[in-house]
C-alpha cells in the first residue's frame, strides 16, 4: 500500500475534512457517553440546548469564542509558516498581565486613548514572548515546540508570583487576584444589558485583517512560501529568517489580544484562571479551520459551543464535561488524517 497524490482535488473534496472530523468526533463522543451511562441523543440534545438554546446561552457561546478566535488566529498564522507556536497560553497571559498593570490606575487617561494603548502594548508583550523561541529556532536550530511549551509553565509561575506579590489586590481577602480595572480601561458592552463586549468585534476585525495580510500582502505570500518549502523560498531570494521572526511577532501579538480582551472585556481583573487552556484549544481551532483566518471564526464558534454546551449538559446529566475535550482532541486528529486523504489516495501495490 502506498499514497498517491491527487492532482487537482475538487472543492467538495477540499471541504470534506472539517465535516468528517466533526462527524467522527461526535461518534467517538457518543460511544463514550454510552459507556458513562448516558443516552447519546440526550447528551447531544443537552449540549446543543446548552450552547444555543437561549439568549443567555448564545451570548455565553459568543463570549467563549472571543479568546478562541484570537488564539486560533495566532496558531493559524504561525502554523501556516511552519512555526510551531504551542505557547499561545503564555502569550495570552502576557497580554493579560500588561492589561492588569496598565489598567488598574497606573495610567489615568480617557478610554479612547487608554484602551488602544493597552491593546498595542499587550500585543507587544506577547510578540516579544514568542520572539525568544523564534530567535532560538532561527539562530541555533532549537525546536520551538519544546521551548514554547516550557515557557507556558514558566510564565504561569511568573503570573502566580505577580498575583501574590506586586500585582496583588490589597482588598482581595488574600486571594491571588489583581485589583479591578478602572472603568476607562474596560472594553464596553456592545449593547447595554447584554453580556457581550467589544472584544468579540475586535476578534472579528483581527480575523479579517489577517485574511487581508495573507491574501493581499507580500508578507502573507512570503509566510506561505516559507511554510511550504523554506529551502525553495530561500533559493528564490526570500529573507526566510526575517519572515519567521515577523510571523512570530504577529502570532504572539494575536494571542496576547486574547488576554487583553478577557481581562478588559470579560473579567475586569487578572486571576490565574482567566484561561482554561485557550492557548492549547487554539491549536484545535486553527486546524479545524484549515489555518484559514475566516475559518478560524467559524471553528472558534463551534468549539465554544461544544464547551459551553458540555458544561450545561454535565450539570443536567451525569456525563463528565471532559467529553468536550475528548471531542475536540479526536476532531484534531481526524482532521489531519482527513486533510491527507483529500490530497492523496491509497493505492494497493
Amino acid at each position: 500500500m502506498r499514497l498517491e497524490p491527487i492532482a487537482d482535488p475538487s472543492l467538495a473534496r477540499k471541504l470534506l475534512p472539517p465535516v468528517l472530523a466533526i462527524v467522527g468526533s461526535f461518534l467517538v463522543a457518543s460511544l463514550l457517553a454510552l459507556i458513562a451511562g448516558g443516552n447519546p441523543f440526550a447528551v447531544f440534545g443537552a449540549i446543543i440546548k446548552g450552547a444555543v438554546g437561549s439568549k443567555f446561552a448564545l451570548l455565553e457561546t459568543l463570549n467563549r469564542a472571543t479568546p478562541l478566535i484570537f488564539t486560533g488566529l495566532a496558531v493559524a498564522v504561525a502554523f501556516r509558516a511552519k512555526l510551531w507556536n504551542i505557547g499561545a497560553e503564555a502569550q495570552l497571559y502576557a497580554g493579560a498581565v500588561v492589561t492588569a498593570v496598565l489598567g488598574t490606575g497606573m495610567l489615568q487617561w480617557p478610554a479612547a486613548l487608554l484602551l488602544p494603548t493597552i491593546a498595542v502594548l499587550s500585543m507587544l508583550a506577547g510578540a516579544l514572548l514568542l520572539l525568544g523561541p523564534a530567535l532560538l529556532k532561527t539562530r541555533l536550530g532549537v525546536d520551538e515546540v519544546v521551548t514554547t511549551l516550557l515557557l507556558n509553565f514558566i510564565f504561569l509561575l511568573f503570573v502566580s508570583y505577580l498575583l501574590e506579590g506586586p500585582l496583588k489586590d490589597p482588598m482581595g481577602m488574600g486571594w491571588p487576584k489583581s485589583p479591578r480595572l478602572i472603568p476607562e480601561a474596560r472594553l464596553p458592552r456592545i449593547i447595554d444589558g447584554l453580556r457581550l463586549h467589544w472584544g468579540f468585534v475586535l476578534a472579528l476585525i483581527a480575523a479579517i485583517a489577517l485574511w487581508v495580510i495573507n491574501t493581499r500582502t507580500t508578507l502573507g505570500f512570503e509566510m506561505r512560501a516559507v511554510g511550504q518549502n523554506a529551502e525553495a523560498a530561500r533559493f528564490a531570494g526570500m529573507p526566510v529568517t526575517g519572515v519567521i521572526l515577523k510571523t512570530a511577532l504577529l502570532s504572539g501579538g494575536l494571542a496576547a489580544l486574547a488576554g487583553f480582551s478577557e481581562v478588559s472585556g470579560l473579567k475586569g481583573s487578572l486571576t490565574l484562571d482567566i484561561s482554561p487552556g485557550y492557548g492549547y484549544t487554539g491549536i484545535v481551532v486553527a486546524m479545524l479551520a484549515l489555518l484559514h483566518p475566516l475559518g478560524v471564526v467559524a471553528a472558534a464558534l463551534f468549539v465554544a459551543a461544544v464547551f459551553v454546551g458540555a458544561d450545561a449538559m454535565s450539570r443536567a446529566l451525569d456525563v463528565p464535561s471532559y467529553l468536550a475535550d475528548i471531542m475536540l482532541a479526536s476532531a484534531l486528529l481526524m482532521m489531519v488524517l482527513a486533510i491527507l486523504l483529500t490530497k492523496f489516495r491509497v493505492v494497493r501495490d
Binding site: P320, Y322, L323, D325, I326, L328, A329, L332, L333
Partner: peptide, 15 residues
C-alpha cells in the same frame, strides 16, 4: 499528531 495524542490521552484520562 503528538499534540493531538497528548490532548486526547489527557482528556480521556480525566473523563
Amino acid at each position: 499528531v503528538g499534540i493531538g495524542v497528548t490532548l486526547l490521552a489527557t482528556s480521556l484520562t480525566f473523563y
